[in-house]
Simulated assay, not measured.
Amino acid sequence: MTGTDGKADVFARDLFALEGWASLAGEIGEQQAYVFAERTSLMWLRPDAFAAGTARGVLTAAEAAGFRPVAARPVRLERCGVRALWAYMCRWATAERLMLLDAAAALGPGLLVVWTAGTSTARAAGGEPVSVRMTRLKGRNDARHREAGSLRAVAGSPNRALTMLHTTDDPADVVRELGVFCDRAERVELIRQASTHLAGALPAAVEGAVRAVEAEVPPLGLPSRHRPGRPVQAPELFVGPVESRWAALVAASHTWPLLSRTPQAAFWPEQETRSPWT
């Protein structure tokens, strides 16, 4: 379920992947669990996308690109969930960047959407898993090198801290992140809803879930990155009304250090070849 050398060995020992696979295989059987992982991609539209007021535009852009939602629900991540989600991908993160991720998640819930391609085949056009295709559309987390028309460009993501959305990189990540985002009951409900819509041609309704998130994280727009006076202090990110926390988060995302010069150990060989500094 992954084309990345060494990743399968790591995920074979991962507790979230174990839970995700158990729920998939238990609900729809092992053969269909593989098909589900190939035919779907998970997107978490983060709370910062809702605060920026661009979440609906991302959903529209994804559908325009040929993807169809098959399930959706509000999902809130706490501090440990943040670290679980990005456990393998934060090799270069500073402590400040982790705090900014926590602050973004603390704004409120995000929206978890299960997507499929607009096709009845197990893989997307060109033989690619749906998650691989969607991740390419997502765009880079570095705004300076981001592709025009990517989902993060639509979202208005200004930097590596406020990336606005997360997607699963490949089918193995679909399985693992079902375990990260949802407890067992939520996971079973999501799998059942998605499986029903995968069997048909109609999209799942997402408006109710979008409104539920917007009720807690209203669209505020992207405030100016410049704040007169003293630098942002950590408590400002977590205390006070959502408007002030959002303004502090945007300002800090432009001034706090996000990349470390000394990365943590790689989990699989491909990670050794990638550096945000080059």
Rank of each mutant, 00 (worst) to 15 (best):
L107V: 07
G108I: 08
P109G: 11
L111F: 10
L112D: 15
V113M: 09
V114C: 13
V114A: 15
V114G: 08
W115A: 06
A117G: 14
T119S: 14
S120K: 12
A122W: 07
A125F: 12
G126T: 01
S131A: 14
S131V: 00
S131N: 00
R133C: 11
M134N: 09
M134R: 14
G139N: 03
G139D: 09
R140I: 00
N141V: 15
A143C: 13
R146N: 07
G149C: 03
S157H: 00
P158R: 04
N159T: 01
H166N: 03
T167G: 07
T167S: 06
D170Q: 06
D170T: 00
V174S: 02
L178V: 04
G179P: 01
V180D: 01
V180K: 00
F181C: 00
C182E: 10
R184M: 11
R184S: 13
E189V: 12
L190D: 05
I191D: 11
Q193C: 13
S195F: 07
L198D: 06
A199F: 07
A199R: 10
A199W: 11
A201D: 15
A201C: 11
L202Y: 09
L202V: 14
A204M: 07
V206Q: 01
A209E: 15
V210R: 12
R211A: 15
A212P: 08
V217P: 02
P218H: 05
P219R: 05
L220H: 02
G221M: 00
S224N: 08
R227D: 06
P228E: 12
G229T: 01
P231I: 02
P231A: 03
P235C: 02
E236W: 08
L237P: 02
L237N: 09
F238H: 04
V239E: 15
